[in-house]
Amino acid sequence: MMRLLAVATLALCAAMPAHAAEGKRIEIKGELIDTWCYFSGVMGGPESVVGTAHHTCAMWCAAGGIPVGLLAEDGEVYMVLKLAGDDESNGGDTFLTMNNDTIVAEGMHYARDGINYLVVSEVIANEGIPNHTHEDFGVTPGNTIPDSVVDKVLEDG
């Protein structure tokens, strides 16, 4: 029996990754953001690639499988690996549709090699998109809204 237990334990350990990290349960508030544009500067400064200004681009990126992050109130960014129990972080619907929402989330925080990760088990509150960055930056990138859409609105008055 003991031998069986030992074998089962060994098999379980072999199935686990070598570096499973120590997680910490947290409650955190922040905006779900497009991490590539935020960190790479490819579209400009960080303040211009959050909120309403960057909402459509953030959806493009989320649908394209770019990691979604949570930008906390203290400026720390957490890579979200699971959102409201959904682990489809590579372009899944939950990650796509909640972009730029400011949420209060409960979940596990992991830190490894200079990057924060968040596994959200529950979204406690969702404020929608209160970060109206379009008032200062327009839309980023500037061609987000097609000319045909702009022209129609201006023509219609």
Binding site: A15, M16, P17, H19, A20, A21, G23, P67, M79, L81, K82, D87, E88, S89, N90, G92, M108, Y110, R112, Y117, V119
Partner: peptide, 23 residues
């Protein structure tokens, strides 16, 4: 190449999540 969620939490589906997860 690893499934990041698996690497951190031990939640390890087949084939690194078969395209659902960040690697």
């Amino acid at each position: 190449v690893v499934d990041v969620l698996c690497e951190l939490t031990g939640d390890c589906p087949a084939q690194c999540g078969a395209g659902k997860r960040q690697l």
